[in-house]
Computed example of a mutant assay.
Amino acid sequence: MHVEDRERIGRWASSIDGQLIDAGCGPGHWTDFLYQRGASVQGIDLVPEFIESARVRFPEVPFRVASFRNLDVPDGTVHGVLAWYSLIHVPPDELSSVLREISRALTQGGQLLVGFFDGSPGDSFPHAVTTAYYWSPSRWGTF
């Protein structure tokens, strides 16, 4: 984990008092990072093998298989969602609906922290897990 990412995510999490979701948690290292800082956090990922690996590596941290498309939480109950280089895998034509689901889950004033690769919005590129897409800061404001 890059030191700047740790600092940024740590600052973000320290400003939130309540439930966090690490959406697209992969191997669980960011979920554990938040948990070790005292956050009430759970990691979710669509890939069962990632969740199983995360549970083995960090047995005290809650992880579950879930999708961005259905976070499986009641409306307005999540105070923050970390989507650190995970929404990059959502096809451009599906991103608005995924953001609506995240918004549905967030409390009023809840926060979403997104990590992404800056580039021509919606352009795809090969990635280690599956196809990924570039975004730009200005594009995020249009969803």
Rank of each mutant, 00 (worst) to 15 (best):
R8F: 14
G10M: 01
G10Q: 03
R11V: 09
W12C: 05
S14L: 06
S14C: 10
I16N: 05
D17M: 15
D17I: 12
Q19H: 14
Q19P: 14
I21P: 00
I21W: 04
I21G: 00
D22R: 05
D22K: 01
G26K: 02
P27Y: 10
P27E: 13
G28C: 02
G28D: 03
G28V: 02
W30F: 14
W30H: 08
T31C: 03
D32R: 13
L34W: 05
L34N: 04
Y35G: 05
Q36W: 05
Q36E: 13
G38Q: 08
A39F: 10
A39N: 10
Q42D: 08
I44G: 04
D45G: 03
D45W: 05
L46M: 11
V47I: 13
P48V: 12
P48Y: 10
P48S: 09
F50L: 09
I51C: 09
I51H: 11
E52K: 10
V56A: 12
V56Y: 07
F58M: 01
F58L: 02
P59Q: 09
E60A: 10
V61F: 04
F63W: 04
F63A: 02
R64I: 09
V65N: 08
A66Y: 04
S67C: 08
S67K: 03
F68C: 00
R69N: 11
R69G: 07
L71R: 02
L71K: 01
D72E: 11
D75I: 04
D75N: 07
G76H: 03
T77M: 07
V78S: 00
V78H: 06
H79L: 02
G80A: 14
A83V: 06
W84I: 01
Y85P: 00
S86D: 00
L87D: 00
L87C: 07
I88H: 00
I88D: 00
P92S: 06
E94L: 10
L95W: 08
S96Y: 15
V98M: 06
V98I: 09
V98W: 00
R100F: 08
E101Y: 03
I102S: 05
I102M: 13
R104A: 04
A105S: 13
L106V: 04
L106A: 06
L106D: 06
T107R: 14
T107V: 15
Q108W: 15
G110Q: 07
G110C: 10
L112W: 09
V114E: 08
V114Q: 09
D118A: 13
D118R: 10
D118C: 15
G119Y: 14
S120G: 15
F125R: 11
P126D: 12
H127D: 15
A128D: 12
V129P: 07
V129C: 12
